[in-house]
Each structure stands twice: as C-alpha cells, then as structure tokens.
C-alpha cells in the first residue's frame, strides 16, 4: 500500500510541476531557459522509454540510440525533401515510428533470447552499424557534416514547440504509468525480478520482451524526431553511443524503474550540463563536464543503484519509521 501511495504522490507532484511549467513561458520570458526546458522534455521522453527496458523489464540495451536516430533522420529527411508543413511532420513521425517498430521487432527477435552480456554487446554493435551506415550513406544523410532544414512556422515559434513537447512528455508519463500497472506491465516486472520463474509460470518471455522493446523503440523514435525539430539540424551524432549514454545517465541517476526518475534525471543532467558549460570561463576542465557525470554515474551504480528517487524514498521511509518509533516510545514511556 505504501508503494502505491508514494507512486501517487510522485504523479501528483509531477502533474503540479507540469501545470506550473505550462504557464511559465507566459509569465517569464527567457529564450535560453525555454530551450533548455524543451530539451529536458524531449530527453525525458527518451529516458522514460529507456526505463521501460532497463527499469521494468531488466533488459540492458546499449543500442537505444538506434531508434532515436531513426526518428531524427526520418523527420529531417522529410523536412528537407518535402515542404515544411505540419502534414509532413505527422507523416515523418509515423514513418519514424513505423521504421523503429520494425527494427526493434527484428532486432528483438534475433537478440532478446540472449543473455544480458551478449544482448548488451550485440545492441552496442548494431547501433554502431547504424552509425557507420549513416556515415557511409552520404547521399541521404550527408554524413558527419549533417544538414539543416526548415520546419513549419508553427513549430518555429519556441513557445508552441515548448508546449507541444511538455504535453507530449506528460502524456507519455501517464501512458507509461498505466502501461506498467496493467497486467502486461506486471509480467514485465516479474521478468525483471525472476526470469526463470516467470517462464515456468507459463509466460512467453520473448513475446513480452519484444513488445516492451517495440514500445521503447517507438517512444525513442518520437523523442529523436522532436530533437531534430528542436535543432533544425541533423548529423550522424544522433546514432552515436553518447545518445545511449545520455539515456543511461538520466535513468540511472534519476532512479531506475520509477518513470518519474527518468524525468528527474533528464532535468538534472540538462540543467547541470548548462550550468557546468557556463563555468568554462572559470576553468577549462568544465569543458569536459561529462567527466563529472561519468564519475557520478559510477558512484550511483555502486552505492545508490536506485538513484535520486530511490534515495529519497529510502530517506522518507526511514524518517517515517523513526517517527513511529518515537510515538511508540512515548506511548510505552
């Protein structure tokens, strides 16, 4: 019961903060901050999609950038080849989602039978294949130089795009919450907890894992498409291991297996990224800001495997426990 209470609390806080964020651009005009928030929302979607795999199904994928890149490239190529109109934005989104679904289905079918090590290794290699492929297929992608493109006027308006990404993030959050609490989601958690037992209870593990990875792939592709729109530029870096690492950092530091943790992680990472790069004037080491995150990440994996959210919950639980103790002491005393 306590878990579901905390769960609800997280969702309520999330909803309240989101409502505040909706009015934020109306009362406070700061272009930079608006852009940072948009980035946070986009990466929150991406990190939440990753949390479905890592936090709920127990799949470690090192190739999540694949789907992000597919989404980003389908959006960019549509915008470049066709007119920058909303119709094509939707078409590009659908194509990206469709492609990601197919790729994640095929990849999942081939690889999800494997053990964790092999799966992580294979997804890393496959993502690298996409990266190299994008570099080689210059006629379509223009390689590492990338290309810029125009987007519909409606999306050019920063505030509009900010609101769209915010609403999408909120929708994805609640959709995933519902998904996780559904019977299907419960099976996923069971697979994470004990794969053999779930299998011996008669569940087809592969089927559940593939569906989970398709959902994660689709969401990642949407995040990639939004990312491309926000930059109005794309190059091969959307397929790079750094993108997967971003998702890893965000979910792990925020808190694995909580959904809200992915959102918090995205906020923490993007904000501190912005803050640390602004410190470059003080010392050149801040140009290598990622090193701090790497160390933080290692320490988190080692000492707080449940991240910020996990640490907070533990703290709260401890506080409540002590309070109870105090009360019972008083009663007996």
């Amino acid at each position: 019961m306590r878990v579901s209470y905390e769960n609800k609390l997280g969702s309520i806080i999330f909803l309240m903060v989101s409502c505040l964020l909706i009015v934020f651009p109306l009362v406070y005009e700061d272009r930079n901050l608006l852009i940072i928030f948009t980035q946070i929302f986009i990466f929150a979607i991406f990190a939440m999609s990753y949390d479905i795999l890592l936090g709920f199904t127990g799949i470690i994928s090192f190739g999540h950038a694949m789907f992000f890149g597919i989404g980003a490239y389908s959006m960019s190529i549509f915008m470049k080849r066709f007119e920058p109109e909303m119709l094509y934005v939707f078409l590009a989104l659908i194509v990206g989602v469709f492609l990601s679904a197919i790729v994640s289905y095929v990849v999942g079918l081939l690889t999800l039978r494997l053990k964790t090590h092999y799966y992580a290794m294979l997804t890393l290699a496959l993502a690298n294949l996409f990266y190299v492929g994008a570099e080689k297929w210059r006629s379509l992608t223009e390689g590492a130089d990338g290309f810029t493109f125009r987007i519909p006027d409606f999306l050019r308006e920063r505030v509009n795009f900010y609101l769209i990404t915010l609403v999408l993030m909120v929708l994805v959050y609640f959709a995933l919450k519902l998904f996780i609490q559904s019977p299907f989601g419960k099976v996923l958690v069971a697979i994470k907890e004990n794969e053999q037992r779930t299998e011996s209870l008669g569940f087809n593990i592969l089927y559940y894992k593939i569906i989970a990875s398709i959902i994660a792939g689709i969401l990642a592709s949407i995040a990639g498409a939004l990312y491309a729109i926000s930059l109005r530029f794309v190059n091969t870096s959307v397929f790079s291991i750094d993108i997967t690492l971003d998702a890893l950092l965000m979910t792990i530091i925020g808190g694995v297996g909580t959904i809200i943790g992915a959102v918090i992680g995205s906020g923490v990472i993007e904000f501190s990224h912005y803050w640390l790069t602004s410190l470059v004037k003080l010392h050149w080491i801040f140009e290598r800001w990622i090193i701090f995150f790497g160390i933080l990440y290692i320490l988190t994996v080692m000492f707080f495997p449940k991240g910020i959210v996990g640490a907070l919950t533990a703290l709260k639980r401890k506080a409540r426990h002590e309070k109870k103790h105090d009360q019972s002491d008083k009663m007996t005393g």
Partner: peptide, 22 residues
C-alpha cells in the same frame, strides 16, 4: 552482479575517454 558490472564498465569507458582529453 552482472547488471551492475555491465552498467559500470560502460560508464567507466566514458570516464577513461574524457580523462584522455583532459
């Protein structure tokens, strides 16, 4: 702990690469 091992070594890879740049 296999999961932690996999996660930690990839993070360490990132740190090693960045340290070279430093």
């Amino acid at each position: 702990d296999h999961v932690q091992q996999i996660l930690i070594t990839l993070g360490y890879m990132l740190v090693l690469g960045e340290l070279i740049k430093v």
